[in-house]
Write a protein that binds this DNA or RNA. Sequence first.
DNA 1: CGGCGAATTGACGGACGTCAACTGCTGTGG
DNA 2: CCACAGCAGTTGACGTCCGTCAATTCGCCG
Lengths: 256, 256
Amino acid sequence: MRDVDLERVRALPLFSDCSDDTFRTLTAGAFLQRFPAGTTLLLEGDPVDFLYVLLDGVVELEGTWNDKETTLAILRPVSTFILAAVVLDADGLMSARTVERSDILMLSGAAMRRVMSEDARFAVAVAQEMAGCYRGLVRSLKNQKLRGGLERLANYLITQRLRQGGEPTFALPTEKRMLASLLGMTPENLSRSLAALADYGVEVNGPSVTITRPAVLERLAKPDPLIDNHQPVSGGVTGKAQRERWPQGDDRTHAA
Amino acid sequence: MRDVDLERVRALPLFSDCSDDTFRTLTAGAFLQRFPAGTTLLLEGDPVDFLYVLLDGVVELEGTWNDKETTLAILRPVSTFILAAVVLDADGLMSARTVERSDILMLSGAAMRRVMSEDARFAVAVAQEMAGCYRGLVRSLKNQKLRGGLERLANYLITQRLRQGGEPTFALPTEKRMLASLLGMTPENLSRSLAALADYGVEVNGPSVTITRPAVLERLAKPDPLIDNHQPVSGGVTGKAQRERWPQGDDRTHAA
DNA sequence: CGGCGAATTGACGGACGTCAACTGCTGTGG
DNA sequence: CCACAGCAGTTGACGTCCGTCAATTCGCCG
């Protein structure tokens, strides 16, 4: 395993604060693996033996019931997933699939649990990570229950624009069918909703979206700091005025 | 504060494993307070200074957006809430309201955070609690996105019956309007859905519900261990056969 | 060049929200 | 003690949003 990758893992909030000993123990038994697109890493209901760390690529977390499935999160590097199942040594509640070819680090779940009780700082970091994930899900649930499809889409676009640097035009991060599932609608309906947003200054061209009149779109979307987590991604420059309106700094995007 | 109450708090998974020192530190600065029904304990977006422990009564957690509100959880004793905000020292993402007169223990959030980094066992317990809450929310989100209103209701009734001891007739734990909000529907629609379940052997009389043909109702509901957390509540006796079908033992019902 | 799957569009139906009227219960004040 | 206001719950009518089915186009990869 390359030092570069090790550095990137060490830089994660989850690991940045633990002792060198702890970090060595965790990474000693770990292995880095490259998966092709479309690989199922973990099946809903199966026991979870590893903590996964996505270093490169894209991973989808999905849930199933009665032959229907829904996307619960779309992960990009660097993020960890299925932490909750690891902490509790329980079966996974969702499946994990690579969307593109992905480099994934796998850390022994047993080692994680062992090390937690020895390194309080690490245990605290795990608790904080879990808390951030929890809050991400609270946001998702409010988003789902309180907003209609069009509003969810509008807010999603606003969030994406900010996450990708704030330029008026940006690219959708995945296939539209997956995006539809994430937003809790059918692909057909996403298509129609995107068309409907033309009236609000949204131009769509394949995966490329440009927001020509942000103010108009915002009046429809009514974004809310208690639902939409507009934290800028690494490299994003956040203006002072904006930081004041969106004071949250915590919250992971998700991750089980 | 009475010893009886202290014992009950100490018995919670969150506190059962920490050192006496830790527990004393936490409870030293704590106070037990009795609130009348309908009291807002915490407003969405406000900073959170305390970890709340519900010792008696009923508390509702709710979220708001655009003049609409939705119930995210209904808590009964003994449970903690807004742990996530305390761990991250962040603003609450949901409001908390007493539904009935409630006895609530309030623990200093600052003390919680301080003590976590000193007592690894406690930090682990916090991480586990957060993980359980997280998984509860994953279930909620799947429930919301994958099932229709009637199916959510049917599963809710099945879960309630099991939680209350498995008798064919049991009582709804709250007003129907709040239940409707929890299930993500309007009161009118809950009313209609309950009526519709008559065909599946459900008899409703005010707050009292009796399930006359469980098998028929289950065929509609299709309960799933990866969504419905049928863990029996204290005192509930779980048969062996059932334990095998529902092997989960973890997961808190929710709690922020 | 042919085929498959993603995306779009239209037509249709069902589920769910909204509005309104009515019932029954409870607590309050004359 | 009764009248009445107020609210939870129910029921009906209606409209809208959204899912389903089908047909078509487009781009990509074999």
